[in-house]
């Protein structure tokens, strides 16, 4: 009976198992590989022969002078991105939806979505140029007397968080507004008509119709963003980091990369990565439980 069922759906099963095999190799084997965090792995001998060392690498990481720095940078940059980068697309979407000229609106949308599709390497190249000591920003600031002498912004540890946040806002605001624009478009037009009849002003309509209409979307996205708090955007950080700003740009992902790939300390860096995955998991599960409670639907 079971065999007949397998034969009957052999094509279907083959299609599904191809995906399962991929997940097994590329998702599950690395999860198994996390166990090298508890061993002293080196590439010269097989995994099973690596001596077991327990929590040694975790303890080493917590005692590492870089530990507090890396944690501060990770949470500092991501919280700042959340604090600044989260509300801006909402404001942008609300204002854009108030534009009546649909052609103008479409042009603005096309332009503001564009940076999302540029690579961080390109954006990094432009920033390197603009923020250099002879770059456009310095020229402008010197011209207006806001600076006495040129500053190489990317070499200033104090500036790094601001640069990371600002460049991400530049890149993602338009794209992140899409979902709010859709939510606003889904608001029943009769609500606006009723507000018109009641003599509501523009501001009152935004305040009492638009914003309540998208509150659900805002809350869910906020929870999701908290769930992904540890994603400091490694693509961006790796492009913008350098020896001079490393004190403020060294986030967990970057530290894992530098220790693991560049210095080949596989077990130690895997322990750091494991630690990161655990925190990420806790954040994501809390986010998922919260959304389920708020909406009655699961997150995925």
């Amino acid at each position: 009976m079971a065999i007949r069922k397998v034969v009957a759906q052999r094509y279907l099963l083959a299609m599904a198992l191809a995906g399962v095999a991929w997940m097994f190799i590329f998702n599950y084997l690395p999860m198994y590989g996390l166990l090298i965090a508890f061993r002293n792995y080196s590439i010269t001998r097989p995994f099973s022969e690596a001596p077991y060392v327990g929590l040694l690498h975790f303890r080493a990481f917590f005692a590492d002078p870089n530990f507090p720095l890396v944690m501060r940078n990770t949470f500092g940059i991501s919280s700042l991105k959340l604090l600044v980068g989260f509300p801006i697309p909402i404001v942008f979407a609300v204002l854009l939806s108030e534009i009546r000229h649909s052609g103008f609106k479409r042009v603005v949308q096309t332009i503001t979505y564009l940076p999302h599709f540029l690579s961080w390497v390109i954006l990094g190249g432009i920033m390197m140029h603009w923020l250099s000591d002879i770059g456009l920003i310095n020229r402008l600031l010197l011209e207006f007397g806001l600076l006495d002498e040129p500053v190489f912004f990317l070499a200033e540890p104090r500036m790094f968080w601001a640069i990371a946040v600002a460049s991400e806002v530049w890149k993602e605001t338009g794209f992140n507004a899409i979902i709010y624009l859709a939510a606003i478009a889904g608001i029943d037009p009769q609500l606006y008509e009723a507000a018109d009849l009641d003599g509501a002003s523009r501001y009152q309509k935004i305040r009492h119709v638009t914003l309540p209409g998208i509150t659900g979307t805002i809350v869910i996205l906020l929870v999701l963003n908290v769930g992904y708090l540890l994603n400091t955007n490694f693509d961006q950080i790796l492009v913008l980091t350098n020896q001079l700003n490393i004190d403020t740009s060294n986030v967990l992902d970057l530290y894992v990369y530098r220790v693991g790939i560049q210095s080949a300390r596989y077990s130690f860096s895997t322990a750091i990565g494991f630690f990161r995955s655990i925190i990420a998991l806790i954040l994501l599960i809390s986010a998922s439980v919260t959304t389920r409670r708020l909406t009655g639907h699961s997150m995925f």
Partner: peptide, 23 residues
């Protein structure tokens, strides 16, 4: 299979184990 997939949304081996696997 679906729960196997869902787990990958929440948890991953991360950079170094993936790199070692690829190698």
């Amino acid at each position: 299979w679906l729960s196997m997939g869902t787990v990958t949304l929440f948890f991953s081996g991360g950079l170094i184990p993936t790199y070692l696997l690829v190698r």
